[in-house]
């Protein structure tokens, strides 16, 4: 059986700077893999190179057994980009944005039941009652959920998410973790970029840590550091705060540097 995601010797340059050096990554079917690293370690670039958004300098990528390109079964892959704003020049409703997820490389016209599928996907992220509202009127966290629904509307086998819980409040993070658990239980392969494991800790089976554009760890998720490492520590506070910031610097990336 082939892997869901297979990258070999991946090198990516953006604006003259080499962002990724010889990255190897394998994600097996049904696995939940977290991609961790400090800001600027190249984790977003890696995930964007995997789905073909940024060009590769060198190396190969296979998705669901097919080399990156037209032959990939795009209808089985859901991608959630890092949140920018989901609103653009012309107003569009949440349902319209989600419906744009029903088309892909092999289907330029939406299916007949696109509208009801979009409604179901919005229901899945708790926004059923906002389907006809303009995306620009939704809050940041709600816009993020619209983007997740857009990826889920095609019922993907492989879900690729770029920092889906950044800036999302705790109950929403927990709800999101629950939704991912359901998908994972049904066999969905999940590759998720995270700044920290947070609410997803119990879900992530394997962690890949990037530092300066290279993989420095591939295996068990790294334990939380400092006060979070205590056996009886109840992890109720995974987000923000200066303490976490320090932990991050000590634990995963001793020498954090901004890269372009």
């Amino acid at each position: 059986m082939t892997a869901a995601v297979l990258a070999r010797d991946l090198e990516v340059s953006l604006g003259g700077a080499t962002i990724l050096h010889g990255v190897d990554l394998t994600v097996d079917h049904g696995e939940v893999v977290g991609l961790l690293g400090a800001n600027g370690s190249g984790k977003s670039t890696l995930i964007r190179a995997l789905v073909g958004v940024v060009p590769r300098e060198r190396g190969t990528v296979e998705l669901l057994g097919k080399p990156l390109g037209r032959s990939v079964a795009w209808q089985r892959i859901g991608y959630v980009p890092q949140r920018t704003t989901a609103a653009t020049g012309v107003p569009s409703t949440a349902a319209e944005v989600v419906m744009s997820g029903t088309i892909h490389g092999r289907r330029l016209l939406p299916p007949r039941d696109a509208r009801s599928r979009a409604q179901a996907a919005l229901e899945g992220v708790g926004l059923a009652d906002r389907a006809d509202d303009a995306v620009r009127d939704l809050s940041g966290g709600q816009q993020q959920r619209v983007l997740i629904a857009r990826a889920l509307v095609r019922r993907p086998e492989l879900l690729v998410l770029d920092e889906p819980v950044a800036g999302v409040d705790l109950p929403s993070q927990d709800a999101f973790a629950g939704a991912l658990r359901d998908l994972s239980d049904r066999g969905t392969t999940i590759l998720v970029v995270l700044h920290e494991l947070g609410a997803l800790t119990p879900l992530v089976q394997r962690a890949v840590v990037l530092r300066h554009g290279s993989v420095v760890h591939d295996g068990a998720p790294p334990p939380a550091r400092g006060e979070h490492a205590g056996a009886d520590h109840d992890h109720i506070h995974p987000h923000a705060g200066d303490r976490d910031q320090t932990d991050e610097t000590h634990g995963l990336a001793p020498s954090v540097r901004w890269r372009p």
Binding site: G52, Y79, S100, G101, I103
Partner: peptide
């Protein structure tokens, strides 16, 4: 009008459209 969903997709979010394998 006929290709409006596809044209909307690339105008709305070109990155997502690329990651959906759209031409």
């Amino acid at each position: 009008v006929g290709l409006r969903t596809a044209l909307f997709a690339i105008c709305h979010d070109e990155e997502f459209a690329r990651a959906a394998g759209l031409p």
